[in-house]
């Protein structure tokens, strides 16, 4: 028999996309604003998030999920800022997916939250393919990394909404060329919002809080 060609035309990660869409609807109904953070390992996601949550915890109800291959260390660190934190240990997987997020939310009442932060596994490649149902995805690049990193990892910058340059307090010591970094980001993703922060000195943190709060206000207004 001659072989027959059967059209499928389906997204390979359809299952994840469907689940992510359901999560997004669930978050919206519950009125919780969900922001995820991706970066390479060691760019300061956890420190940044600890400081961000610390600044927001008094005024908002916050929870966080944090992904790593192993250990509960990051969850323990984030709990210093706010108690409702769960670690997702992925074992060997190099990224979070919508299923892991859904499972980690088990037992939490989303209606009682204003913000949910998701810290992805430190990886600039794989998380880009997996929608987690978040409202905003932030990609972090630290001042101690190469200014051309966005050019090397364009996909993640293309799937994120905001770029954040962290560890700005180390910029001088690392001879970090801020303008070159900004150019790299904008070459890959024209018009992308860029925020420069230092979790250590607090520079840029107020702007970040305002951005995140603005996101929730806009979502509630339905835009």
């Amino acid at each position: 028999m001659t072989p027959r060609l059967i059209e499928v035309r389906a997204n390979i990660l359809k299952e994840n996309d469907v689940l992510a869409r359901q999560l997004r609807q669930r978050f919206k109904r519950a009125g919780v604003c969900v922001v995820s953070f991706v970066s390479s390992p060691g760019s300061g996601k956890t420190t940044f998030l600890e400081k961000l949550m610390g600044r927001m915890a008094a005024r908002h109800r916050i929870a966080a999920l944090v992904g790593d291959l192993a250990t509960e260390n990051d969850a323990a660190r984030l709990r210093r800022a706010c108690p409702q934190v769960r670690q997702i240990t992925t074992g060997t997987a190099c990224h979070l997916d919508a299923k892991m997020v859904a499972a980690a939310l088990e037992g939490w009442v989303l209606e009682e939250l204003d913000y949910l932060f998701i810290e992805n596994v430190g990886n600039l490649v794989c998380p880009s393919s997996y929608d987690l149902g978040e409202q905003m995805r932030v990609v972090l690049l630290s001042a101690t990394e190469g200014e051309d990193k966005p050019l090397k990892y364009p996909t993640i910058f293309n799937t994120a909404d905001v770029a954040m340059i962290t560890k700005m307090d180390l910029a001088v010591a690392a001879e970090f060329d801020l303008e070159a970094a900004r150019r790299s980001i904008l070459t890959v993703r024209p018009g992308m919002r860029i925020v420069e922060v230092s979790a250590k000195t607090g520079a840029g943190m107020a702007e970040t809080v305002a951005m995140v709060e603005g996101l929730r206000v806009r979502a509630q207004a339905g835009c």
Binding site: L5, I6, E7, V8, R9, A10, N11, L13, P190
Partner: peptide, 21 residues
């Protein structure tokens, strides 16, 4: 102009299967 509209290049698609009986 910096912002460009992406027409294609984001596909991750199972297009078809070739089956034999």
């Amino acid at each position: 102009t910096p912002e460009q509209e992406i027409l294609m290049g984001q596909e991750l698609e199972l297009r078809s299967m070739e089956m034999e009986t």
